[in-house]
Design a protein around this nucleic acid. Structure first.
Lengths: 344, 344
DNA sequence: TACCGTGATGTAACCGCTTACGGTGAAACG
DNA sequence: CGTTTCACCGTAAGCGGTTACATCACGGTA
């Protein structure tokens, strides 16, 4: 590995000049600049990031905090891949890398999931990270609060946080849910039930309130027995649907807070001998891959998956370059009409 | 941020001693060691990783090379999330982090996918990465070769590479395919067709040879017209299945090299008015989530998804700690029998 | 001609940690 | 009692950059 010093010697200049060529080119004479650049290329020079970080007290990395929630072992983020794609590409444009933080070595105790937010914050300092991106793994609101308050720039996904240099990005969950209900209403439904996600999950809460708004918009009275709670998993969707279908006056349409649960509900309906969408309309949320494969294909509320990553990257970069915390970003959702509600 | 120097002063020792307390504890007197440790804790001391890396010429990060293939824009890795979970946890156990490398800033030209393997290698040197993990994004065999030859420790996933310090991990694709065929044979099928993945994709190639082995095992003659090629996408599965079903003597069973294509084939069968599994048996590969949701649920060859990550981490760590390249790792597969082949 | 501002470059301190090497004192040895 | 051994610890030289400050040459100005 060629070092700046070597280049300096070959060019007959000082290391300071070499450094300036790369960081403040305009302060260097055109001729020497070219010379340095040429030699650097010949030697395939690459600045040592560790040295640079040590000196400048900042790196070109931002940390990714993503733990699988030990309380929901089987849980998978519905669109992690797309999110990462967006995040990575947006970050790359600024020359930044994504560091997937390991929980501090000694935190591999039982249920270490986000057990030690402080550990991550320390990692941030140790590595001079520019900031943190927090991926929601179900219900980490409390833990995320610690991050947000720590003072390091951070942006959370799908969890509302606030702090001196923190913000978050989320979908317009309420709006999406409202649209879903409106769609159902437009198709003539009045007995519309909902299967919620975990109580402490913010997107789920927003979807519930969107559901209520939708009913209110249509002047449909709300019924407590039409709101069943699930946990985003498929099985809970099945169970909730069974309870709903067993009501004296069962709903004619069900809006599930996740596609997984909608699929679960679909199974329940099928088991109950009901035809979807004829006997029961079904609508989900997320637009995961499965949604387009089940029979009938699921009408659902689609989120801008790579958009999450891109928005997060932008927010982080903005904070790094000095700006204060941005206002929370709310991504638009889009209703994808397929077959599970009929009315094509 | 407290520094080693501060601790040294407070303890009345030299910085060297402080450093030794953390790196070679046994060379420090018990009493001073305790003292240093105590003060370090009080000050919430965290060693500066940049300084450490600069000095030792090695970091505790390993790079992740994962590009979305521009030739297959919609392509998604079938189980990236599980893979990352395994990778991250296994790496964490060694105190290592995963750095998702951005393509070198200027490589965001059109089709920058893995366009510049050298760029990644340079990143490796700039950051003193311990090694690289290469995730196959469809067919990067050539590019991966460059990495493997570069001398940095690297382990590829699902792509065979060889180099001074390179190895790879993959599933027993041939074995899994063979099992799938055997399963079909056991159910009485003789006219067994296959839908392959891309020609240049190694796992696909192995699955094809496994398919052939399976037929040979059963003494069933191979028919060229029974091998249709796809690209792992669903649509190609549909198309291939249509061609197969249009044959004078159509197959009674189809083995697809991916679940996506199997689902595609399922759609084709459905469109053709064929009942699965009664009129046509279907079997896939990967065991992605969709497999268990389609109707009928897909019998498929399951891979040890987190196992990939764990194996990769182990291989990397082994190479970092001096050992030469490990022998390629082949993970066992498991046939998951569901409904698409009947014979429950 | 003396003076000054300015652009280009060099000097050197510093970032925080690791480690080869050397020094010290006490215990062990002859 | 002199000498060796060894455990323990300090000294100081890096690692490879960045950057405040000093220097110097030069053209413009009074």
């Amino acid at each position: 590995m060629a070092t700046g010093r070597e280049i300096a010697q070959l060019c007959g200049v000082s290391v300071a000049t070499v450094s300036r060529v790369f960081n403040q080119p305009e302060t260097v004479g055109a001729e020497t600049r070219e010379r340095v650049l040429r030699v650097a290329k010949e030697l395939d020079y690459r600045p040592n990031e560790a040295a640079r970080a040590l000196s400048t007290k900042q790196s070109t990395m931002i940390g990714l905090v993503w733990d699988t929630d030990h309380r929901r072992p089987g849980w998978r983020h519905p669109y992690l891949q797309d999110l990462l794609i967006g995040l990575k590409s947006a970050l790359s444009a600024h020359g930044y890398h994504l560091l997937m933080l390991a929980t501090s070595g000694d935190a591999r105790e039982v249920g270490a999931s986000l057990a030690d937010p402080v550990g991550y914050v320390n990692m941030t300092r140790r590595h001079h990270l520019g900031g943190l991106v927090l991926i929601d793994s179900g219900s980490d609101a409390e833990a995320f609060g610690t991050f947000a308050q720590s003072g390091v720039p951070c942006v959370a996904l799908d969890v509302a946080v606030e702090g001196p240099r923190a913000t978050y990005v989320t979908s317009d969950n309420a709006g999406g849910a409202r649209d879903a209900v409106a769609h159902l209403v437009a198709l003539g439904h009045e007995r519309i039930a909902m299967i919620t996600g975990p109580q402490d999950n913010q997107p789920s809460q927003a979807r519930v309130s969107g559901y209520r708004m939708g009913l209110r918009d249509a002047g449909i009275p709300q019924r407590a027995e039409y709101v069943e709670s699930g946990d985003f998993y498929r099985a809970s969707g099945t169970a909730a649907a069974q309870r709903l279908l067993a009501l004296d006056e069962p709903p004619t349409a069900i809006f599930a807070a996740s596609d997984e649960m909608a699929v679960g509900a679909l199974l329940a309906a099928r088991a109950a001998g009901l035809k979807v969408p004829d006997d029961l309309a079904l609508i989900g949320f997320d637009d995961i891959e499965i949604a387009s494969v089940v029979e009938p294909a699921l009408t659902t509320v689609s989120q801008d998956k790579p958009g999450f990553g891109v928005a997060a990257a932008k927010a982080i970069m903005a904070m790094i370059t000095g700006a204060g915390p941005e206002a929370p970003l709310v991504l638009p959702t889009r209703l994808v009409v397929r077959e599970s509600c009929g009315g094509a």
